[in-house]
């Protein structure tokens, strides 16, 4: 016959032995002993940064800005004139480039050799429109040429902002009309940013 008292004592001993809980599903450390005690446990962290290439010229999102030059009859062919329009107005646009996948970013445009047309056989070459950048580190490719610009990476990271201001040279007289303004009249320039 089992002694109930003995059984009770065994049960009590067992319950005392598990007074410090053990966690089977975690990194757990239990330290016992006299004097100062110290236990360690770790957590690993991982941040996954996606590779991105962001490029903005002008208004954000899908909006396309129109830059307009409108010399008056009094100043036709008399020298550079500023434009109007652009997200910053005054013929000025915001330009942002961000790339984090490594390497430099090259900016090109598709107006090489093209001219704005009036639909009546007259044209004004894109080379008459200059682009000035507010930041030397984010230059603008020259319109009407095959020129490109490079935005250099720092530590595999490119993150630059600038303002590009367009100016019409207005050094010659052209037949009256509206040049460009539509895709059909070569009025749109598309910039492309690329990184390796």
């Amino acid at each position: 016959m089992k002694n109930p008292c003995k059984q009770a004592l065994i049960a009590a001993a067992v319950s005392l032995s598990v007074a410090i809980p053990q966690f089977a599903f975690a990194e757990a450390t239990t330290v016992t002993g006299a004097g100062a005690l110290s236990a360690n446990a770790r957590v690993d962290f991982q941040i996954t940064i996606p590779g991105v290439l962001r490029f903005r010229v002008g208004s954000p999102a899908a909006a396309i800005d129109m830059i307009t030059f409108a010399p008056t009859s009094a100043n036709i062919g008399t020298g550079p004139i500023s434009g109007t329009g652009g997200d910053l107005t005054g013929g000025k646009v915001t330009v942002d480039v961000l790339a984090n996948a490594g390497g430099d970013v090259t900016i090109s445009q598709d107006s090489n050799g093209l001219s704005l047309a009036d639909g009546a056989g007259n044209t004004i070459p894109y080379t008459t429109i200059a682009t000035a950048s507010s930041q030397a580190t984010l230059g603008a490719p020259a319109l009407g040429t095959a020129g490109t610009t490079t935005v250099f990476a720092t530590g595999n990271l490119v993150q630059e902002s600038a303002e590009w201001t367009y100016t019409y040279a207005n050094g010659a007289s052209y037949p009256s009309g509206i040049y460009g303004g539509t895709v059909a009249n070569n009025g749109r320039v598309t910039y492309t940013a690329s990184s390796p």
């Binding site: 410090i20 809980p21 975690a26 990194e27 757990a28 330290v31 002993g33 236990a39 957590v43």
Partner: peptide
């Protein structure tokens, strides 16, 4: 019982 510390993370 002996003093003890337990850390689980």
């Amino acid at each position: 019982p002996a003093p003890a510390v337990m850390l689980s993370i």
